[in-house]
Simulated assay, not measured.
Amino acid sequence: MSGGRNGGRNGTEPEPAVAWQAQSLLVDYPYPELFEHVPLLREAAAGFAEPVGEPLERFLDHLEGTPAMELQSQYVATFDHRKLGSLYLTYYTCGDTRKRGMALLRFLSAYRRAGLELGEGELPDHLAVVLEFAATVDPVAGRRLLCEHRAGLELLRRGLHEIRSPWAHVLDSVSATLPALRGSDHEAIARLIRQGPPEEEVGLDPFHAADHLFRGVNR
């Protein structure tokens, strides 16, 4: 991984899982208690390789300089009101189509094989959930899921930079923990830029195929 090739800035080589845990916290909704974790997050970021840690430090600068309610409003405007700002990874490859239900099943199957059950109504492809899974449950399976959705992650990262969102720094850090983009990734990104996610198929419930797996699950 690019994030660990040269070791951390303190001379150590931190596990990618530690970076994924920090990124998971920072890409999730900024509840007020997030501010309590800033000193620990800064300490962790200082130990990461520069491409992983420096973007997190820039985001933490923004977090500390922004009142909680304002940060929450920025988060909603960034991720809830823009389709191409979606943190749900299957949206980029499947849109709101039946195929998305099957893609969600793949995430759920990976989680269940590792012994993780999600809370009711918690979709498994949210980036914060995937990063937390990779950090705390199964780094190999979590990394594989992130790599499988590399094109969507890159499209999200570029879109955040276009609107100058502070969360672009967090996506820069995530990208730095993953392998360099390959030819097939570039092709998928170019296709997404040209065509966008697949359009909604009228009359189909994109989550119907996965619905039975969400019933009654809890963490």
Rank of each mutant, 00 (worst) to 15 (best):
P124K: 00
E187A: 15
R164Q: 13
H81L: 15
H37W: 11
H186Y: 04
E33N: 10
R215M: 12
M69D: 13
S175H: 12
P179E: 08
W167R: 00
G203R: 01
S2P: 14
L116M: 11
D172L: 03
G8L: 02
R5E: 15
M1Q: 10
E117I: 01
V129C: 05
L34R: 08
G47Q: 04
P32C: 06
F79C: 08
E13R: 10
H149W: 04
A110C: 12
A209V: 09
R143W: 13
D138C: 08
L204T: 12
P51M: 09
V137K: 05
G101V: 04
W20N: 02
Y75N: 03
D61L: 00
R9F: 10
R144D: 13
L40Y: 09
E162R: 14
H169M: 05
P51N: 09
L40T: 14
E122A: 09
E64N: 00
N218H: 09
R215N: 10
N6R: 11
I163T: 15
E199W: 06
V170G: 10
C147I: 15
L171E: 08
K83A: 06
S175R: 07
L213T: 05
A49N: 15
R42I: 02
L56S: 01
A176F: 10
F207S: 07
T90Q: 11
Y111I: 00
D28N: 11
R42T: 01
G3Y: 05
R100F: 03
G47L: 03
D205S: 13
E117K: 06
Y111G: 01
E117F: 03
G115I: 13
Y91W: 14
D96F: 13
D61G: 03
P179R: 05
E120H: 15
S184V: 07
D96M: 14
E70C: 01
L63C: 13
W167V: 07
R157A: 11
I193W: 11
E117S: 10
R106Y: 05
L71V: 04
S184Y: 02
G203C: 13
L63N: 02
D185H: 15
N6K: 08
G115Y: 06
G142Y: 11
G159Q: 07
H149D: 09
L63E: 02
L146P: 03
G152F: 00
E57F: 02
E36Y: 07
Y31W: 11
F214E: 10
G159A: 06
A103N: 08
L145P: 12
